[in-house]
Amino acid sequence: MLSYRPGSTFAHRLDPRSKLLVQFGLAIAAVAHPTLPWLAGTTALALCTLAAAGLSPLAVLRSYRVVLAVLALAPFVAGVALGPPWFRVEPALRSALYVGRILPVLFVSAAYLTSTPVRDTRAAVQRLIPGKPGQILGIGMALVVRLFPLVLADVREVRDAIHARGGEARSLQDRVRLLAVRSLERTLDRSDRLSVALRARCFAWNPTLPPLSFARRDYPVLVLGIALAVSPLATV
């Protein structure tokens, strides 16, 4: 799966806020118009973002192969008819065009993922959303990223314990109930311990924000992001 890779490409050196804007802008632009020229344009732009992140399009396609394989079924589902001629080409082509719009979104999203550490996105969220909501979401993201592997290990441990005690022979409801109850218990116990730990460390509304700053190279990227986000309005 795609994840952050340290590097010094153009995309790595950009501020996460300008990258977020381009990512959302391109997603809006790609989804807004299901036409071939629009699809070609957004795909070309998305390929440029991949180049800026030093990422191969093939690597992205390989990484999202399950997503793409499932999406590729949509044109077949759209084309199937319950009577003669049994398969209609026009709705299948329309669906293929719609699904094609997703490709540039996956590309730009992959460029963002591989060039931006999670802590930078957390810092961007904390700065973009003012006040206490921003603090809660920023610190919350950092804690979720830290605790997710532990909670996942808990859930897998519970699942393996149920399996080791002959859980396969139990009904589906029993297995799911046991897994949910034990996992939830462990999760809530962790929450209680985290709560005590945060209070013991004087958890405050005014912590030091992670440093972020725009450089000269960010400004054209910001303009591009805004232009992409409003591009559907320009073509109405």
Binding site: G140, V144, L152, S191
Partner: peptide, 15 residues
């Protein structure tokens, strides 16, 4: 207390 529960339930949803 509510914040830590929200954080852990987000992690549980992910798991």
């Amino acid at each position: 207390g509510w914040f830590t529960k929200a954080v852990l339930l987000a992690a549980l949803t992910a798991a």
